[in-house]
C-alpha cells in the first residue's frame, strides 16, 4: 500500500550511462528539439522512427523498459480521453465504420485519434527519458545556464532556478509527509477512499491542514538555514560542478539532427539521395 508512489512520473534513476553523463543543457535542448520534431511530423512512419530513437536512448541510459512504461501509465488515461474526443467530435465525412443515432465513427477520425494519442504518449515519453537520466540539480543548473543570456531582458535566471531546485527538492518530502499523515489519521479511524464525494472531500481536511502547516514550517527552517549560511542570491556565486560541453554532447546533437532529418524530410528527398 505505497500510497501515491504511482504518481511519481519520471523520477530520476541514478545510474552510470552515457546518457546520464551528457551535459544537462544537451538533454534539455535535445528534448525540446525532439518535441518540436514530434509536432512537425505528419506521418506515422515519423512517429515510429522517433519511438525507435527514444527506445535506443532508454537502452543507452540503462532504464528498464518495463519501468519506463509503468511511469507512463497515468498518461494512458489522458490519451484515452483525447482519442475518444477526436473520434466523437472530429470532422464529419469520410468512411463511416459505425453509426448509432448521433454517434458516428469514421475511419479517418479513428486514425487521427490514434495518431494524436500516440504522439501525446511520445511527447511525455521524451520528457520522461530526460528526467529519468538527469537529476533535478543538474536540470536546474542546465536551465539556469540556458536562461542566463535572457537576464539582460529581466529574466531572473538564478532565482527561477533556485525556486525550481527547492520545489523539486521538496516534492518527495511532501509525498512522504502526505503518506505519513494519511497513515497517522487512518490510525485514528479516518477513511480516505470511502463514502460520498462530499465525505471524501471533508476527509481531506485532516490531511491538508497538517500538510500546509508542515510546508510552512519547512519553508521557515530552510530560509533560516540559507540565511545562516550567508546566501545572497546569484551574484558572484561560483559552482562546485562547472558545466562543460564534451565530445559526447556533439555526438548526441549530431544524432538528434539525423533523426530530425529522417523524420521530416519528405520521402522524395530520400529517394533522390538514394538514386544518385
Amino acid at each position: 500500500m505505497d500510497f501515491l508512489r504511482g504518481l511519481m512520473l519520471g523520477q530520476y534513476v541514478p545510474a552510470e550511462s552515457p546518457v546520464h553523463r551528457l551535459d544537462p543543457r544537451t538533454k534539455i535542448l535535445g528534448t525540446m528539439w525532439l518535441v518540436g520534431v514530434l509536432f512537425a511530423t505528419r506521418s506515422l512512419a515519423g512517429l515510429v522512427v522517433l519511438t525507435a530513437f527514444l527506445g535506443g536512448v532508454l537502452a543507452a541510459g540503462r532504464i528498464a523498459p518495463a519501468y519506463a512504461v509503468r511511469g507512463l501509465r497515468p498518461v494512458f488515461w489522458l490519451v484515452g480521453i483525447a482519442v475518444v474526443f477526436q473520434v466523437l467530435f472530429g470532422d464529419s465525412g469520410g468512411h463511416v465504420l459505425f453509426r448509432r443515432g448521433p454517434l458516428v465513427v469514421t475511419r479517418e477520425n479513428l486514425a487521427a485519434g490514434a495518431f494524436y494519442g500516440y504522439r501525446l504518449i511520445l511527447l511525455v515519453a521524451a520528457t520522461t527519458v530526460m528526467t529519468f537520466t538527469t537529476s533535478s540539480v543538474e536540470l536546474t543548473d542546465g536551465l539556469e545556464r540556458l536562461l542566463r543570456p535572457f537576464r539582460r531582458v529581466g529574466v531572473p535566471a538564478h532565482e527561477l532556478a533556485l525556486m525550481m531546485t527547492i520545489a523539486l527538492r521538496f516534492i518527495p518530502t511532501l509525498f512522504e509527509e502526505t503518506e505519513t499523515i494519511m497513515k497517522a489519521q487512518m490510525a485514528r479511524g479516518a477513511e480516505f477512499a470511502r463514502g460520498s464525494l462530499v465525505a471524501r472531500a471533508r476527509a481531506l481536511i485532516p490531511l491538508l491542514v497538517p500538510l500546509f502547516v508542515g510546508a510552512f514550517r519547512r519553508a521557515d527552517a530552510l530560509a533560516l538555514a540559507m540565511e545562516a549560511r550567508g546566501y545572497r542570491g546569484g551574484e558572484h556565486r561560483t559552482r562546485m560542478k562547472e558545466l562543460r560541453v564534451a565530445v559526447r554532447d556533439y555526438v548526441a546533437a549530431g544524432m538528434l539532427l539525423v533523426v530530425a532529418a529522417i523524420v521530416l524530410l519528405p520521402p522524395s528527398v530520400w529517394r533522390a539521395v538514394a538514386g544518385r
Binding site: 505519513t180 489519521q185 502547516v213
Partner: peptide, 11 residues
C-alpha cells in the same frame, strides 16, 4: 499506533 512526531498530525 503513535507515529513519530505525532504533533504534526494535529489539525
Amino acid at each position: 499506533l503513535l507515529f513519530q512526531y505525532p504533533e504534526h498530525q494535529l489539525f
